[in-house]
Each structure stands twice: as C-alpha cells, then as structure tokens.
Amino acid sequence: MQILIVGGSGGIGFAMVHEVLNAFPTAEVHATYHRHRPIFQNRRLQWHALDVTKEPEIEALSERFIEVDWLVNCVGMLHTSVKGPEKNLAATDSEFFLANLSVNTLPTLMLAKYFTPKLKRAEAPKLATISAKVGSIEDNRLGGWYSYRASKAALNMLLKTIAIEWQRTLKHGTVVALHPGTTDTALSQPFQANVPEGKLFEPTRVARDLVELLKTMTPKQSGGFLAYDGQELPW
C-alpha cells in the first residue's frame, strides 16, 4: 500500500504520518514538507520537499510514483505572521485573499490532476483534503473570515466536482472533504480562547479519527463533506 500525506510536516499532517504508519504496518508512506524537513524517520517513510502552490513541483512529485492508494492533503492556512482572518469587509485585502486560494484551494485541484492516473491503478483509491466547517455556505451564521471561508467553500466545490468525474472514470475511487474539528496546532493557536471546553482536539486524536473514517469509506460516499466523527456536513 502506498500512502501520500501532503503537508506531512504540519500539525495534523505530522500526526497523520504517524497514524498511517501505525495503522498500516506494511504500507510505504510518503510525506511532503515545505521548508524544513522533519527529523522524524522511519524505514517505511520517505520525505519529499514540495511547494504545493507550484504546479511544476506537483507534477514532478507525481512522476516519482507508479501507483498511490491514498492521497491526503493536509496543507492549509488561516493567518500569516502579519495578517489574520478578516473580521469585516474593511479588513479584506486582495493579496491575502489570493494567498488563501493558492494554499487552501488550488493545490487539491493540481494534486488531483497529476495523481489521478496513479490513484487509478490502486484497488480502492482515496483522495481526501482537510477542509473546514466554516467553508459551509449553509452553516455560515457569524460572517467574517472572508478569505478562509471562500477558499474552503471553493475547495469543497472542487472535491465534489472531482468526485463526479471519478464516478465516470474511476468508479472504484473515493473523494472526500474532511472537517477535523478545531485542532491544537499553530493554525488555530490565536483563536483557541473561544473554543468551547472539550472541543479543542489533540492532533493525534484527530489523525486517528480521520484515518478510521477513511478506512471505512466506500465509493458510494464519494463526494461527501464529513466531520471527524462521520457526521455529514451541509455544503
């Protein structure tokens, strides 16, 4: 079994790397990092440098594989060192908006473009991306966070559309958007004070939940938007 975790050096991604190594004792696991290669090593793990915002790098990475069983994209951004999610229209900025799209949305499309031929060779291929409940248009009650919400809503649309194409061309495959819940990582750090008690999850717990969810998913569920506990979320 060949598993690729994109964004394996991030909070959720790093936990996912550990979880799939434990859950699939014979699997070969590949993981990507952006700038700094993690020091964690395992004889069944191979690290790859990747900037997911660069299409040529995604294409080059795909050429290293003959077959992939699971591809899980854990890359995401909510804020930078100088700018956080917008509270109102006055705080919106075109560069920040486009940066959200370039990190949260476009990489999944490019990964699907270049890795679908590799996934097609697997017996039960799965393509999953970490999304967010705030990307749900129907569930939006608070407003704000324009760039992040829009980038995740666009991501969800891409995954739904990929799933429809796979129903014609890769009938044995499963495509899914996953909401991990609020996870104790650098992404959520500035906003954890507002998280209800018991709703801030450790990355190890999130990785375990998501891997268990992916293990049980079938092509009939392809195109879904699911929370960590299996709950189907509204688009």
Score class of each variant (00 low, 15 high):
47 W>Y: 10
96 F>H: 04
134 V>Y: 04
78 L>Q: 01
133 K>C: 08
21 L>S: 12
80 T>S: 14
21 L>V: 13
63 E>F: 09
94 S>G: 05
85 P>Y: 15
22 N>Q: 13
20 V>N: 03
62 S>F: 06
40 F>M: 09
73 N>I: 08
27 A>E: 07
97 F>C: 07
117 P>Q: 09
130 I>F: 12
61 L>W: 01
59 E>F: 14
39 I>V: 15
11 G>S: 07
106 L>N: 05
98 L>I: 07
26 T>V: 08
107 P>W: 02
86 E>P: 09
104 N>D: 04
72 V>D: 00
20 V>S: 04
10 G>T: 05
44 R>C: 10
72 V>F: 06
39 I>A: 14
115 F>H: 02
60 A>I: 10
64 R>Q: 12
121 R>M: 14
94 S>D: 06
92 T>N: 10
65 F>G: 03
107 P>A: 03
85 P>D: 07
13 G>S: 10
11 G>R: 00
98 L>E: 07
17 V>Q: 02
84 G>L: 09
6 V>K: 00
7 G>I: 00
60 A>S: 10
56 P>A: 09
116 T>Q: 11
24 F>A: 05
19 E>R: 14
36 H>N: 13
92 T>C: 11
79 H>K: 14
120 K>N: 13
110 M>G: 01
63 E>M: 11
79 H>M: 11
47 W>G: 00
71 L>T: 00
98 L>P: 05
35 R>G: 04
130 I>W: 03
120 K>T: 13
37 R>V: 12
83 K>P: 05
14 F>A: 10
6 V>A: 02
92 T>S: 09
51 D>Y: 09
121 R>T: 10
92 T>H: 08
51 D>C: 08
44 R>W: 15
69 D>A: 09
44 R>Q: 14
60 A>F: 07
20 V>H: 03
121 R>E: 10
68 V>R: 00
79 H>L: 13
72 V>T: 06
103 V>K: 01
112 A>L: 07
9 S>A: 14
69 D>E: 12
79 H>D: 07
55 E>K: 03
50 L>N: 00
57 E>H: 03
28 E>G: 10
55 E>I: 03
127 L>W: 03
66 I>T: 12
94 S>I: 13
123 E>D: 10
58 I>H: 01
40 F>R: 05
125 P>Q: 11
89 L>H: 11
120 K>S: 15
13 G>R: 01
77 M>S: 06
57 E>F: 00
69 D>S: 11
35 R>N: 09
132 A>M: 10
124 A>S: 13
127 L>V: 09
65 F>E: 04
115 F>Y: 07
117 P>F: 14
57 E>G: 01
63 E>D: 09
63 E>R: 14
102 S>H: 12
47 W>T: 02
93 D>N: 12
